[in-house]
Each structure stands twice: as C-alpha cells, then as structure tokens.
C-alpha cells in the first residue's frame, strides 16, 4: 500500500481521534487541526509505508512534542508573559456533553506541562516514569505536575483520587548534599 493510501486511511479512520487528542492539549479546535496536520506532514515526509502499524502512535507522540516545542518557544521569547494563556471557549462539537465537556473545560486551566501529564497518564495510560521519559523530565517532576493538576482540577471536577501520585517516592526539595 502506498503512503498516500496509508495517510488517507489514517485520516479517515483516526483523524477525528487525533484531532480530539490534540484538542485535549491545546484547547481549541483550529489549533488542534493545525497541530495534527503538521504532525502528519512530519511523520509521512520520512516514514516508510511498512511502518503503518505504529504510525498512529508515532503521530500522537509527534503531536505532543510539537505542542510542547511551541510552549518552549513561546516561553523562551516571552518569558514575562503568563505561561498559561486562557484558550478560547471550548468547542461544542467536541465537548459534546456531560463529563467530556466538564473535563475538556477543566483542562484549560492547566499549564501545558500539567495538561500533557494528565493526557499521558489518563489517555495514554503511561506510568509516571514513562511520562517522564516521554517529556524529558524526571518522575519527580511528573509527580509535581500531576499534584499541581489535582489541586487545580478538584475544585472544578470534584475529588480525583486517580491524580494521586503515591506510587512514586517523594524527593525532598532542598535536601542536604
């Protein structure tokens, strides 16, 4: 099968899911679609057709890195601006109802890294060390991001015991050498 056919099949079968995944990260539909398209261009410009079996996972990973790269670039050049811009209103087409709408809306209060950690933990089902590896940060940092996310999300969503991070040993900040 040609790469064009692979791409067509991926977009038609999983395109909406990829956009929805990106939407969890960026919080607005236009940016989510741009993010997915950029990730697909990067993926298919280099990939061979026989690797189709893991292409969707690879695209999701590229989406995450492209999103965080943009976050890094913004913070590098605009260090004095607020790190968390309030996204546009949640798109009604995606956040259709109930819990999904509540969660999608609540995620917009998180910082980019907190949001990435929540998505990797609860959608990608990664462990804390795996999230750290994916983001290039320590498991301790992941634990902090998730803990901060819990403090921000619980006032909006109610108790979130799943955001507890007791499975990772705490590193004492400022410990003696």
């Amino acid at each position: 099968m040609s790469w064009e056919a692979d791409l067509d099949r991926l977009v038609s079968e999983r395109g909406s899911a990829l956009v929805a995944y990106a939407y969890l990260l960026v919080g607005d539909m236009a940016s989510a679609e741009d993010l997915v398209q950029d990730a697909l261009v990067r993926t298919y410009s280099r990939r061979r057709t026989e690797e189709i079996t893991w292409v969707e996972a690879y695209v999701r990973r590229t989406i995450l890195h492209t999103y965080l790269d943009g976050y890094r670039a913004r913070t590098r050049f605009a260090a004095v601006t607020p790190l968390v811009a309030t996204p546009d209103a949640v798109d009604d087409d995606v956040a259709a109802a109930g819990d999904r709408a509540d969660v999608a809306r609540a995620l917009t209060v998180l910082s980019p890294r907190e949001r990435a950690c929540v998505v990797l933990r609860f959608y990608d089902d990664l462990t804390l060390p795996e999230i750290g590896l994916r983001l290039g940060v320590s498991p301790g940092a992941v634990k902090r991001y998730l803990s901060d996310a819990r403090h921000r999300l619980e006032p909006l969503l109610g108790p979130q015991p799943g955001l507890g991070t007791e499975d990772v040993a705490t590193i004492t900040r400022g410990g003696a050498r």
């Binding site: 079968e13 909406s16 969890l24 995606v94 819990d99």
Partner: peptide
C-alpha cells in the same frame, strides 16, 4: 459525582465523528 478522568478522556478522543476532519489533498 466526579467524572472519571480515564473514561472522560477516552470518550473525548475515541468517540468522535467518523468523518475526516480535514482534506487530505
């Protein structure tokens, strides 16, 4: 009742529309 994050995120991603979100051309 508090929404379950795992279920809510999987619903948000995997139960969307089946049509292509943009043109592949």
């Amino acid at each position: 009742m508090s929404p379950d994050l795992t279920r809510a995120l999987h619903d948000a991603v995997d139960t969307g529309p089946d049509d292509s979100p943009f043109s592949v051309d």
